[in-house]
Design a protein around this nucleic acid. Structure first.
Length: 416
DNA sequence: TCTGGGGTCCTAGGACCC
DNA sequence: TCTGGGGTCCTAGGACCC
């Protein structure tokens, strides 16, 4: 059996850990740049605030209804997530961290009563981290996702361990809510009369193969109880790494945009070094405001091949700036730039270049020491001059909560 | 005025090889 | 006049996930 443990309204729940007075009140967390609503408390959902809604459209409504609003604080959520995953590892040696707020936990070899065990997991996470979770248990990942959804409507735990329960669960789950079935497939399936997960398990496999590829076929088998999606316990290195941000305000100055691009490139380099990889390609993209009524939308991108795969700051920045200069058109008002690195290989296995020799060890050392200093003293304490200091491209984060668990000077103060 | 930021996998079709 | 049969690699686009 596999348990899916999933934090309820995760980002909002993280904020509530340090603001217990918010319990029972409407709370939302916004995306970067305070753009869209990306996490809502149950009370906020009840008010009709939708996932992904632009915050500015709901500003007045949220003020009138005393909704507490937070900018996203990924440092905090990431830290609480790590703690949650560590706690889960006490329950099973086989934990797959699936996303920031959920994990699959293999219950293979656990002899305790499944229902009791699931309740114990839920209670322990709540006690240790302060986050409410739902636990869904079933034979396959796809079924445990369904169990988890049912759990959240009940007391937080749902175990599907018999044919009767399975059929009930499948009959009471819309096909659109099944893991692996998105909007497009749901529409197509509904149009031929497939409404529930149960209907889908009765659908002809050849039709599924033809219209939804092998991925759809796996979903059908998983719903029937045959595992097709394995547990993946080891963190796999990323095949693509991206750092992209919308600007705090629209920009047309290439020098300021260069600061943003080079900082994004450095972030990508840091992510590469963290997973001990190097990248062979770098893509730079830039675009204007896609929502603008008055200006035309312009999107451009450029992919460059590095002479030698690299993960050091100055290499990636050099290529990124080069790419930007090729894309940049004066007089346009830009809204966002991004850097994506790909062609990722192991740090230790680098193909040298016929013309440029091997990697420059000195520059790699500089990057490593920069990492150490920045980890100890704070992000970008040591940086390249081109990264600059102009605030215009930086995110809007007007409602940011403190970094309660990761910065000494932002620790919660308690009066006793 | 104000609309996020990451990822993965699969397939078809074209270009190429013998 | 007749024009096979087997592969691989790459890319763009489309679907999905959080």
């Amino acid at each position: 059996m596999i348990a899916l443990v999933d934090g309820n309204n995760f980002y909002v729940s993280c904020e509530k850990v340090f603001n217990p007075a918010l319990d029972g009140k409407p709370v939302v967390v916004l995306s970067n740049n305070d753009g869209c609503v990306i996490s809502r408390s149950n009370e906020a959902k009840a008010l009709g605030i939708k996932m992904g809604e632009p915050a500015f459209k709901r500003k007045e409504f949220m003020e009138q209804n005393n909704v507490t609003v937070f900018s996203s604080n990924y440092t905090l959520y990431g830290d609480l997530s790590n703690r949650m995953m560590k706690t889960l590892q006490n329950f099973s040696p086989n934990v797959e961290v699936y996303s920031i707020d959920e994990a699959f936990v293999s219950l293979e070899g656990i002899t305790a009563n499944t229902e009791d065990y699931a309740h114990k997991i839920k209670a322990t996470i709540h006690k240790h981290i302060g986050i409410p979770v739902g636990v869904g248990v079933a034979e396959t990942k796809t079924l445990s996702k369904i169990a988890n959804k049912i759990a959240k409507k009940n007391n937080g735990v749902c175990v599907i361990d018999s044919e009767t329960k399975k059929e009930w669960a499948l009959r009471n789950t819309l096909i659109a809510d099944v893991w692996g079935v998105g909007r497009q497939y749901a529409k197509k399936l509904n149009s031929i009369g497939i409404i529930t997960a149960y209907d889908f398990t009765k659908l002809d496999s050849a039709w599924i193969r033809k219209n939804m590829s092998v991925v759809g076929l796996r979903t059908k088998e998983e719903l029937l109880g045959t595992p097709c999606i394995a547990m993946e316990m080891n963190l796999q290195p990323k095949k693509n790494i991206a750092t992209t941000r919308a600007f705090g305000k629209k920009l047309s100055d290439v020098n300021i945009i260069s600061e943003a691009v080079s900082t994004h490139a450095v972030r990508c380099a840091e992510k590469l070094r963290r997973q001990k990889s190097r990248a062979q390609y770098i893509t730079i993209f830039i675009h204007t405001d896609p929502f603008s009524q008055t200006e035309k939308y312009v999107y451009k991108s450029k992919t460059l091949t590095l002479a030698i795969a690299s993960n050091n700051n100055s290499d990636l920045v050099k290529y990124a700036i080069h790419g930007l200069k090729e894309l940049f058109e004066p007089k346009l008002l830009y809204k966002k730039v991004g850097v994506i690195v790909s062609g990722i290989s192991d740090e230790m296995q680098v193909q040298g270049s016929l013309f440029e020799g091997m990697n420059d060890k000195k520059r790699d050392t500089v990057s490593i020491i920069t990492d150490q200093l920045n980890f100890r003293f704070g992000k970008d304490v040591v940086k390249l001059a081109v990264q600059g200091n102009n605030p215009d491209w930086k995110l809007r984060q007007e409602k940011l909560s403190p970094h309660y668990t990761t910065r000494w000077n932002e620790l919660l103060k308690v009066k006793a």
